[in-house]
Computed example of a mutant assay.
Amino acid sequence: MSNETEPTVSFLGCGSMNEAILGGLLAGGMSPASVTATVRSAERAATLRQLHGITVLATSEDPEANRRAAASADVVIMGVKPVGTIELAREIGSVLKPTTTVVSVAAAISLAMLEAALPAGQPVIRSMPNTPSRLGKGVLSISAGNHADASLMAQARKILGSAGTVVDIPEEQVDALSAVSGSGPAYVFYLAEAMAAAGVELGLDPGLAKILATETVAGAGFMLAEPDADPTALRRAVTSPNGTTEQAIATFDRLDLPAIVAAGARAASNRAQIITEELDN
Score class of each variant (00 low, 15 high):
208 L>I: 15
220 A>M: 08
84 G>D: 07
224 L>M: 12
28 G>M: 04
187 Y>M: 07
89 A>M: 10
177 L>C: 11
218 A>Q: 12
204 L>W: 03
196 A>F: 01
63 P>T: 11
115 E>W: 07
209 A>N: 02
187 Y>L: 03
271 R>F: 10
104 S>T: 12
181 S>M: 01
210 K>F: 01
33 A>D: 15
243 G>P: 01
261 V>A: 06
230 D>K: 02
140 L>I: 15
238 V>D: 11
50 Q>E: 13
44 R>P: 08
165 T>H: 09
205 D>C: 09
154 A>C: 09
51 L>T: 15
248 A>L: 09
36 T>N: 08
50 Q>N: 12
34 S>M: 14
273 Q>W: 14
188 V>P: 02
105 V>I: 14
87 E>K: 12
263 A>G: 14
70 A>W: 01
261 V>E: 01
271 R>L: 09
77 I>F: 03
103 V>N: 00
45 A>N: 02
176 A>F: 07
207 G>D: 15
3 N>W: 11
165 T>P: 01
278 E>Q: 15
145 G>V: 03
273 Q>I: 12
35 V>N: 00
155 Q>M: 14
3 N>M: 14
225 A>Y: 10
63 P>K: 14
89 A>Q: 01
204 L>Q: 07
109 I>G: 01
137 K>M: 12
66 N>M: 10
199 G>D: 06
151 S>R: 13
175 D>Y: 03
115 E>M: 06
44 R>E: 07
160 L>D: 04
157 R>Y: 07
73 A>M: 08
119 P>S: 09
179 A>N: 00
82 P>N: 03
188 V>N: 04
232 T>S: 15
80 V>H: 02
133 S>H: 01
178 S>W: 00
28 G>D: 00
73 A>D: 07
162 S>I: 07
204 L>P: 00
274 I>R: 12
66 N>H: 08
58 A>H: 06
